[in-house]
Amino acid sequence: MNTEQLQLVLQSAWTSLPTLLGALPVTLGFALGAMLLGLPLGFLVALARLSRLGWVRGLSSLYVSFIRGTPLLVQIFVIYYGLPSLGITLNPIAGGVIALTLNAAAYLSETIRAAILSIPRGQREAATSLGLNAGQTMRLIVLPQAARVALPSMSNTLIGLVKDTSLVSVITVVELLRSAQLVIARTFEPFGPYLAAALIYWAVSSLLEVVQRVLERRFSRGS
């Protein structure tokens, strides 16, 4: 690549930035939405995986195994393109959010389950001896400690979701990657817009990593 080509690439990346940054809220909205919806669902799945009922454990384990064992792109296709054959039609935003939420919930459930299991059983027994019921023990004793253990993995899940939102571009959602593709369709210069999109993903992920480290230090001081 000579100097002139490099200048063209940099100019293309710079001129595409306003359009790409305009699509960034969509990317962040998908990631945060899937995280906020995936957390309670993941918590319920984690509790199901810890249930004493065999059929509950079995169904929840099957769900986690299926989601973790299939590509997210295939899950998006099944939800957006497959469900209409069953009479369920979703718009691109709803289809993308549902797919990302179901995917995130499976991974979050394993994080939450492992965090709950990391709390010594003796603490639960001590809480019971003090007259706390199972719900109070979970809410007051187990979950505050489990949250500290789970924080790094949950933060990594959010960072992964930011990058995974690029996959909803295949169902015409105009997020960051799709916005870059639309710019390329107008300019016929792919390197600059794709480079700019990659730098934005990197910047957002790096910022989230900084926030993660701050939260981890704060939680560790509070422990």
Rank of each mutant, 00 (worst) to 15 (best):
M1K: 10
E4C: 01
Q7E: 12
L8Y: 08
L8H: 13
V9T: 15
W14K: 13
W14D: 04
W14M: 10
W14G: 06
T15A: 12
S16P: 04
L17P: 05
T19C: 02
L20C: 06
A23I: 10
L24D: 07
V26F: 08
L28E: 09
L28R: 11
G29D: 13
G29A: 15
A31L: 03
A31R: 01
A31I: 02
G33D: 12
A34L: 09
L41V: 14
V45S: 00
A46C: 09
L47P: 00
R49W: 00
L50W: 00
R52T: 13
R52P: 02
L53K: 14
G54Y: 00
W55V: 14
V56E: 05
V56P: 06
R57P: 00
G58I: 01
L62N: 05
Y63E: 03
I67G: 03
L73F: 14
V74E: 02
V74T: 14
Q75L: 09
Q75V: 03
I76M: 10
I79R: 01
Y80G: 03
L83A: 09
L83P: 04
T89L: 11
P92C: 08
G96D: 08
V97G: 01
A99I: 04
L100R: 08
T101F: 07
L102P: 02
A104L: 02
A104E: 11
A105C: 09
Y107Q: 03
L108H: 05
E110T: 09
T111G: 00
I112M: 15
I112C: 00
R113Q: 10
A115K: 05
I116T: 02
P120L: 03
P120E: 12
G122R: 06
R124A: 14
E125D: 14
E125C: 07
A126L: 09
A127F: 09
A127V: 11
G131P: 05
L132Q: 01
G135K: 12
G135I: 09
L140G: 06
I141Q: 05
L143F: 13
P144S: 11
A146N: 06
A146T: 07
A147V: 14
A147C: 11
A147D: 00
V149N: 08
V149K: 14
S153Y: 06
M154G: 07
S155T: 13
N156M: 12
N156A: 13
L158G: 04
L161S: 05
V162L: 07
T165V: 08
T165E: 06
S166V: 09
V168R: 02
V168A: 05
V168F: 02
V170P: 01
I171S: 09
V174P: 07
E175I: 10
R178C: 04
R178D: 06
A180E: 04
V183H: 06
A185V: 05
A185L: 12
F188D: 09
L195W: 10
A197T: 14
A198I: 11
Y201I: 11
W202Q: 10
W202I: 11
V204D: 10
S206E: 12
S206Y: 14
L208V: 10
V211P: 04
R213F: 12
E216W: 01
E216S: 03
R217M: 02
F219C: 09
F219E: 02
